[in-house]
Design a protein around this nucleic acid. Structure first.
Lengths: 210, 210, 210, 210
DNA sequence: TATGAATGAGAATTCATTCAT
DNA sequence: TATGAATGAATTCTCATTCAT
């Protein structure tokens, strides 16, 4: 009998390990030898599970999507107030900070390297999912949520480029303060009527989200 | 080929031509041969003007900074109203859309490739310069200006990854509408006293910039 | 898969299956994985029966020799006339056409790959055996028989390189016509005295066999 | 100014050097490193002149054909008697013995390796050219000439596989003796009338060429 | 016995860089 | 100053072979 290995399970394990390495250094700056060495297998093993370096990238992109991205949404669904939901969001934004950076870098690498794939659609899906989740959970219009997503993106990028000048964690805290003022944090969901203040705020702040 | 007498002038010309190629494909995906061929010189000539591929990157980073980025500020200095200034900003944001994308990609490549260089400081300078210019010209607090810069960054990135879903030009238009509501567009500058509306708005919008 | 109890018997079975694959593609162009897959076993099994790829080649060479090559000779021994013997020869030449091609290719591969083996002697034995058999059965001098063997070799090679231009089967038919004229086809063997005609013919045709 | 090199001339020089190496060892048994080392250049240089290992093979096949193969025919054209022409043929057969072996091995390698090429046509052309040249120069029917070609092929192959048992040079001598008897060696060409003997012989020997 | 996952040396190929002209 | 031929280290990938199960 052969060595007992759950091929698919192990493949995912390898992908997981590849992810941070690839993102940190960039697709083009990691050699297969390096990758194998850092993971702790031989190059041959890598090629046993993936037909090519490019394919690792592609599979990684898929894997990362289906695995890590959406996990946190379930955490907010049952929470009664927006303030509490926002707490979870902020917590997750911090927790996943590096992950989002990596994802962003990965997306850029995908864009530049992989020709035969609809990278755009993948990112659109991600953007939509995240935007819709925020709109629903935080009870804000989609446009506001999209703006929030865009702002998060900018934050992640800036913090990545200037980690000491604009540390990511601080940026998240700042954003939290903004949102506390801007969002209908005192609403209990699902609430049919929104408070005056709240509505007014949304109108005033409409710009943020339009 | 004309004999370019001014060595330095020609070097800049070459850098200019390298810029879009490097950004579009990414540092690692351009070979010196390709670069030379697209520019229309030999690899030997490239090495006559630059000691290494990495150095082209570095010089390009410097060149791009000192040359293109700040040019537009002078255009707004003499304008009397914020609305007019905003017009110029929006126009420039559109005009330079691709350029900013490239700059962003370049910065990311720099971050990943060039070890012996304070890339962070360069990007901090850029962020500060842009933020300060916007704060001054649009008469808003620095924090607001920084938030605007971060949002621009997010916009550029999202539009780059999903050019068909969120086209950059449309995003700029949307942002313009937001800013028209949020900014003290009717102020005539330099105004010593800020109008009530304006102040109120800034307070209200504080979140955007905090 | 049935449990083959006789190790050696199974080894021969595997060799048999390897033969055409090896010859068709050439030693260097078949991987052990391919070989195993086409045979329907695992690489591990292959290595259970053969110590190395090279060894498969060597064993195959031996196996092929002792097994298939001489089989047909027994078929002609009892036939009374040369014409009848020739019939069997022609029939076998056609039947074994692909086999001879493979053998030839195998011999060339052996010559180029396997250093530690007297490939020459093996082929000399084969040449001698075939030549002697033809000389005896067709009642011609050894030199003529050797020439016939050489001609057969050329035919096989040419037909292999230009299968559409000089199809092997047609070449055999042509050769048969030649031999009908040239050989003492009407002799009944074993004849102690050779007929005049026959002798004359041999003299005339001496060239063919010298 | 660049290093002055006649690119095409040098390419041919490299092909020439590749030829014997490739033939001796076989396409699959020569590494690019080996090839480069034996030729005395770097692998980089090899790839400067040829896009791939396979392409070297293809170009070599073309080059060898157009360069070496047909050269000798011109040597016999002006000779008055068939005997003299035969002298030159024999001389060339001996001189080119190794070359023909190489060509044969190369053809087999081509057959097994190069898929995107009409290897058969190339070999048909060669066979036809050689056959026609012999038919014309030796004043024999095409069929006889083809048989002669096939026999030569067999000789080359057998001598290659058993260089000590059937040395090529001796085989050529033997063939020469055969041909002296069989061919109209005493004819003066272009002779309008063929001697009785001659015609008779051709008729008698028709078998050889059919 | 049989399997096929794992290995890593070695293959083809690329590409930044050098340098003779 | 400009060229592009030449270099060879480093890259991606292959494959014979080993070995735990």
């Amino acid at each position: 009998m052969p060595k007992i290995v759950d091929h698919d399970e192990y493949r995912r394990e390898l992908l997981q390990k590849c992810f941070s390495i690839f993102c940190r250094k960039g697709f083009a700056n990691v050699t297969m030898r390096e990758l194998a060495a850092e993971i702790g297998v031989s190059t041959g093993t890598l090629y046993h599970y993936f037909p090519s370096k490019e394919n690792i990238m592609e599979q990684m992109f898929e894997y990362v999507q289906e695995t890590n991205v959406y996990e946190f949404v379930s955490r907010t669904a049952h929470l009664p107030t927006i303030a509490e939901k926002l707490d979870v969001f902020v917590e997750k934004w911090k927790e996943y900070g590096e992950f989002y950076q990596n994802l962003m870098l990965l997306a850029i690498d995908m864009m530049r390297h992989i020709k035969n794939r609809d990278t755009e659609q993948v990112f659109i899906n991600f953007s939509n999912y995240y935007t819709n989740a925020m709109a629903r959970e935080l009870n804000i219009p989609e446009k506001q949520a999209r703006s929030l997503f865009v702002y998060l993106l900018g934050m992640i990028l800036h913090s990545m480029l200037t980690p000491n000048f604009l540390p990511y964690a601080e940026q998240v805290d700042t954003l939290r303060i903004i949102l506390d003022k801007v969002l209908p944090v005192n609403d209990v969901l699902p609430a049919t009527g929104t408070s005056m203040t709240n509505t007014a705020k949304i109108e005033t702040e409409e710009g943020l989200s339009r």
